[in-house]
Structures are given as C-alpha cells and as structure tokens.
Amino acid sequence: MERPALPSPALIGRVYRSLALGWLATKAAVLLVNAVTFPRLRPGTPAVRPRVSLLVPARDEAQTLPGTLPSLLAQGADEVIVLDDRSADGTGEVAAGLGACVIRGQPRPDGWHGKPWACQQLLHAATGDVLIFVDADVTWHPGALDAVLGELERTGADLLSVQPRQHNVTPGERLLTPLVDAAVLSYFPYPLIRLPQAAAGMANGQVMALRRAALEGVGGFQAVRRAVLDDTAFARHLKARGGRLAVALGGDLIGVRMYGSYPQSVAGFSKNALPLHLHSRPLLLLGALAHLGVYTLPWVVRLPGWRVLRVAGVLERMLVNVLTGRRRPADLLEGLLGPLTPLLALPVYLRALRRTVTWKGRTYRQDSRQE
C-alpha cells in the first residue's frame, strides 16, 4: 500500500505566503479603519460641567508621582484622591506633600486582586458624579480634563477610556512597550465597540471615566474582583448590562510612561498575556509562533513573498506610531525592530505560561477565566 504523498516544499511555501500576507493585510485593514474612525481627544469645554473626582490607585509610586500628580491637580477637578495601596516607599506621604487628598488602603479581602480592590475603595471615598480612575504613571496636560468630559458628553458613554500617548525615554522602553498601541489599533476595529454584544467591548484602565450611576448600578468593581485584565473585563461586564462604551486616543493631552526598562516591560506584559489569549495556553503558544513566522522568519529564510513580508512587517509598526501621533524620527525608527520583536517577546510568553503571575509584590493565580 502506497503512502500518501507529502505536500511539496513549493506548496508549503505558497500556503505560508498566503497566510502571512493575509494576516498582515487584515491588520492593515484594521489600521485603516481606525485611522478614520478612532476618536481623538480634542480641546473644548463641556456644555454641562458635572462634579468630577480624579482617583489614583497607587502602590509604591513615590518615584512616579512627583512627575505626574502636579499636572493632575492642575486640571481643576472638584477633588483628587490618591489611594495609598499599602505602599512600602512613602507613596502616601509624597502624594499628600504634593497637595492630594490621600486615603490609606485597607487590607484586601479574600478573593480580591489589588487594583479592583483599590478602585472599589476609591469609589466609596469619592463624591463626584463622574469618577475618573487614573494610573499613577499618566501625565495630564492643560485642558485634558475638559477634553475628557467633552468626549464623555459627546458620546453619551457610561464608560470612556483613553489610550494615552506613549512616552518612551530609554532604548529599552522602545523594545516592547509601544506594542500596547499596536495591540489596540491593529486588532480591534473601533466600530465594533458600538455593537451590543459584550464581547465587542474593550477599555484601557490607565484612564477610565465613569458615570457614577452606571458604576454603582453594576455593583462597582465586585464583578471583576479577581481579574488581572480588569479593565476590559469590567467594560464587557458593564456593556452586558446595557452600559455604553467609548475609547479615545489621548493625543497631545494625555500621555504615559508605562515602564522604565525592557525587564519592566516583560514583567508588565506577562501578567496580561494569558487573559488576552482567552486564558488558553495553546492559543498563547500559537500566537507566539505566528508572530515569529510572520515578522521574523522572512528575515531568516527566503520563503515565497519574503520581500513583501519584510517591508510590511516594518511599515506596520511605523504606521501605528503615526496614528497615535508619535512621529519623531526616533519613534518611526522603532519600525526597524519589527523582525526582532517576536524574539524579544518570548520571555513574556514563557512567563505567561506559569500558573502564577507576580505584580507590584503580589502573586496571583491565573488558572481560571476570572484571573
């Protein structure tokens, strides 16, 4: 009995080329859609100014707050509250010295992760009608608060989150950190957020503006108390209960410096990698192999379509930066990292395969969909 013939190398090459080019073409189409439809914050004053609380969950941020908190205090909100989440570096004292109202975080109840519990405490402490939760590493420029309130008013959203513009200082920060923008802008077509299905929801926890009535109506952050990727989980929970979502690019008004080095980027991304892959380790591994095959392999082996794949892989990251307003020469040159990025991301995937992740000195299990 004859054995079935194996696929020829030429056939394998053609299949590879079709899949790789299809991948890149799909992402390019999503980028094009988002270039046209993704909202940007713009200066302006809302017609009605609600009472606003700016709320900062902070754990071991004593080095960060002097560079970011003054700009937040200058926005003219009715109150700025910093929750010192049991820091070991004097975060609360630094925040109080800068002029913020500081509350001390209470011990976490069983079953709560750090950030959802911090945000739940801030919800109870705040008095505003609009509650804006802001990470400690986010910088607000003049007019940012009015722009956020104007966008919230324009969209009628119950939750508006903002994608701050990345500010990377050291070479190590540029290796992986800008991929936050690529993950949003090349994989999620913004018009999907208008669909009623909860799965078509997303949010960025760095800046989340919520109407108090909507937040209290879903029980605060109780439903995502054990979620590592709590921002998107909360957005989908809110949407499933009739809430309206919106997202906007921060542009010139809101920026962020997420991580100060490549190792910090690896640690930060690895805690979110598994939830982003639907808590599926096979899907996580498939994603790693796919990125290696599309972006790195064409620079190692001259497979069919290698020239097009090389150019497309480099241009993609440049286009993402242009779309977010990162257009300086150093920012555009990040595109040259395209072939190396899947290799640089391998430590992220390896850490994400573990049963636990560690962040801010706390260890969380990630063996369920609520992790």
Results as ranks from 00 to 15, higher is better:
Arg3Cys: 05
Ser8Asp: 01
Ile12Val: 15
Val15Trp: 12
Arg17Gln: 14
Ser18Trp: 15
Leu21Ile: 10
Leu21Ala: 07
Leu24Asp: 09
Ala25Ile: 00
Thr26Leu: 14
Ala28Asn: 10
Leu32Lys: 10
Val33Ile: 14
Asn34Ser: 10
Asn34Ala: 08
Thr45Arg: 14
Ala47Phe: 01
Ala47Cys: 04
Arg51Ser: 13
Pro57Arg: 03
Pro57Trp: 07
Glu61Trp: 10
Glu61Ser: 12
Thr64Glu: 12
Thr68Ala: 03
Leu69Val: 06
Pro70Glu: 06
Ala74Ser: 11
Gln75Gly: 03
Ala77Gly: 07
Glu79Gly: 08
Glu79Met: 04
Val82Gly: 07
Asp89Asn: 09
Glu93Ser: 06
Ala95Ile: 08
Ala96Lys: 12
Ala96Ser: 14
Gly97Pro: 03
Leu98Pro: 03
Gly99Thr: 12
Ala100Glu: 11
Arg104Met: 05
Gln106Arg: 15
Gly111Thr: 10
Pro116Ser: 04
Trp117Pro: 02
Ala118Glu: 03
Gln120Asn: 09
Ala125Glu: 13
Asp129Ile: 01
Val134Arg: 09
Asp137Glu: 11
His141Ile: 00
His141Val: 03
Asp146Trp: 03
Leu149Tyr: 08
Gly150Pro: 02
Glu153Asn: 11
Ala157Leu: 01
Leu159Asp: 02
Ser161Arg: 03
Gln163Tyr: 05
Arg165Gly: 07
His167Cys: 05
Thr170Trp: 05
Arg174Cys: 12
Arg174Lys: 14
Thr177Tyr: 05
Thr177Trp: 02
Ala183Gln: 13
Leu185Met: 08
Pro196Thr: 01
Gln197Thr: 01
Gly201Gln: 04
Met202Phe: 11
Asn204Gln: 13
Asn204Lys: 08
Gln206Pro: 00
Arg211Glu: 04
Ala213Met: 02
Ala214Arg: 02
Glu216Ser: 02
Phe221Lys: 01
Val228Leu: 15
Lys239Pro: 04
Ala240Asn: 00
Gly242Val: 07
Gly243His: 02
Gly243Arg: 00
Ala246Tyr: 06
Ala246Trp: 02
Ala248Leu: 12
Leu249Arg: 08
Gly250Val: 06
Gly250Asp: 10
Val256Ser: 09
Arg257Asp: 07
Gly260Asp: 12
Phe269His: 07
Lys271Val: 15
Lys271His: 09
Asn272Lys: 07
Ala273Thr: 09
Ala273Val: 06
Leu274Trp: 10
Leu276Met: 11
His277Asp: 11
His277Glu: 13
Ser280Asn: 07
Arg281Gly: 00
Arg281Glu: 05
Leu285Pro: 03
Ala288Gln: 14
His291Phe: 13
His291Ala: 13
Leu292Thr: 02
Leu303Cys: 06
Trp306Ile: 00
Val311Leu: 12
Val314Phe: 02
Asn321Pro: 00
Val322Leu: 15
Leu323Cys: 09
Arg328Asp: 11
Asp331Ile: 01
Leu332Gln: 06
Gly335His: 13
Gly338Trp: 09
Thr341His: 06
Thr341Phe: 08
Pro342His: 10
Ala345Trp: 14
Pro347Gln: 07
Leu350Ser: 05
Arg351Gln: 10
Ala352Arg: 13
Arg354Pro: 00
Arg354Trp: 10
Arg354Gln: 15
Thr356Gly: 01
Gln370Asp: 14
Gln370Thr: 12
